[in-house]
Design a binder for these strands. Structure first.
Lengths: 286, 286
DNA sequence: CACAAACATATTATATAATGATACGCTAAA
DNA sequence: TTTAGCGTATCATTATATAATATGTTTGTG
């Protein structure tokens, strides 16, 4: 809880972080009292970066304009700037832009700034070697879980093997066991308000059911979910608690339903998972 | 070689990608003919992002101003904007800024845009499981190698276990075996001009020696280096060639000198490494 | 092959919006 | 208590981003 509330912003060009960009568009040009501490040009540039995702891996100028809701010429200038600055690669043939290696460099800088990752990494490596299964370090990021470190051991979906993926906290074992450490009231509010999204046919979207599950998690100290994000995937997670007992991260293990059942998970995975989570000590980060 | 040369830039606020930011500073304010396709405000914002690295994990406003060479007030505005946009976290006590989770989200978007990673990932997982050793996917990025995907199997340094790290191509097995696939002339130019940096006491900085090594690599088809980046580390790499025979990426394996010798590497690692590299087919990316 | 549509690229007048100087206030050290 | 250092806030000025438009280039179609 160290994060502070950002300055109230006068310029409404800025967009909420979680909302899908392409839904905002257009009406961003209505001006209000300008906050001189907000540089809208920079914010617009960032919108271009955020336009890229799983389904938009390379974008033309016009597509970029469409997605960001910015003027064609603005996009032209901003994209060109990002290209010159090495933030976007440009395909000479198709003239389309793509994320550059600089995006990975930023991730590298992030890793050094997140003390938890440094702390966890060696222990996660040991764990994954011992289990022979995929383990992840998950952190709470708003209403979502972000997989900060991933050690895939078995072939799996691409989404499950690269870091940086975010999923609704309520729909994941990691999110559930983090929430289970929250004080009653906050937990209830989260269960009521936070986003859920039916990723698979088996994703639990009933909030009462989610509440019940998290209740159990709070008692047992671990969470197990079935096919919430990927069918036939079992997610097992233990929270990493801070000194106050509250967690904002978790150790997560992902296995296949076809090779594991609940009994074996309890015997062969949970003890080691719990151990690893405990061993990664509390730190100062949000 | 699909990348195109960016527009000539009129505004010299922009900085070369590879040069250390803090060395540029100051004299960026001398104006020239403005290129209207270059948005200097955006470029300045990016400078703030790039100010963060291994050694600068959280920065105060004044430190940020010092490092970027920007006015105190400019930094104030830009940092505040980045904070509002969710690109920088702010410690409420120390008032210092840090990379946010958004940096990992960008990395995630990058991964989807890089078809090679998607292609390589399952094969790298198999390889790392088979060898029981750390394997990486390395891509050429300017004069450097960037580790795009990392599958650490043994405890190692933090730098060697997170993706996004860049190292001089000439000093790494991955870089050497990529360069070995280049036409004679280009290779020579690279050996002559590209940066090298004495990371450890054992890093080869003699370009003649590097040239000799790459010559051998070109014949054998693989590269092995000793303690170039980390003492007691052996790096083994095989290039991933495109249809024209030229490579811009490599599969890399990192093992400890204490548990491996050259003979065993030839027997137990190289065949599988080579196999994996061959199996990851040519794609269209730069 | 010609024509049109779609898109990228380039230019310019205009006023919006970034600028940087400065002042204020807080905290911690002297 | 004073001072230094830093973060925060304000504002007049004009540099700089803007959006409209024109030009060039590629792609696809009748």
């Amino acid at each position: 809880m160290i994060k502070e509330t950002p300055y109230a912003a006068g310029n409404q060009d800025q967009i909420s972080n979680t909302a899908p960009i392409h839904l905002i568009a257009k009406n961003t040009m209505t001006k209000t009292k300008q906050n001189t501490l907000f540089v809208s040009t920079l914010a617009k540039g960032l919108r271009l970066l955020r336009a890229f995702d799983e389904t938009h891996t390379e974008l033309s100028l016009t597509k970029l304009a469409e997605m960001t809701g910015l003027e064609k010429s603005a996009v032209q200038r901003l994209a060109n700037t990002l290209h010159l600055e090495g933030m976007l690669d440009k395909d000479a043939e198709t003239r389309r832009y793509r994320p550059s290696h600089a995006w990975l460099r930023l991730a590298y800088a992030y890793y050094w700034s997140d003390a938890l990752v440094a702390r966890a990494m060696p222990k996660l490596i040991d764990l994954s070697r011992h289990l022979g299964e995929t383990v992840n370090l998950a952190e709470l990021s708003g209403q979502e879980i972000i997989y900060a470190a991933r050690l895939p051991c078995k072939r799996t979906t691409f989404a499950a093997s690269v870091p940086g993926r975010t999923v609704p906290a309520l729909s994941t074992s990691a999110g559930q066991c983090i929430l289970a450490t929250f004080p009653e009231e906050e937990r209830a509010a989260a269960i009521r308000d936070w986003l859920v999204h039916a990723q698979t046919p088996r994703t639990t979207i009933d909030r009462a059911e989610i509440s019940r599950q998290i209740g159990i998690v709070a008692e047992t100290g671990h969470a197990i979910t079935h096919g919430q994000m990927i069918l036939s995937e079992l997610g097992i997670a233990c929270a990493i608690r801070g000194p106050d007992g509250r967690a904002w991260s978790a150790v997560h293990c992902s296995v296949s339903e076809h090779s594991w059942d609940i009994a074996r998970i309890h015997e062969e995975i949970l003890p080691w998972l719990q151990d690893t989570a405990n061993a990664i000590q509390p730190l100062l980060r949000p």
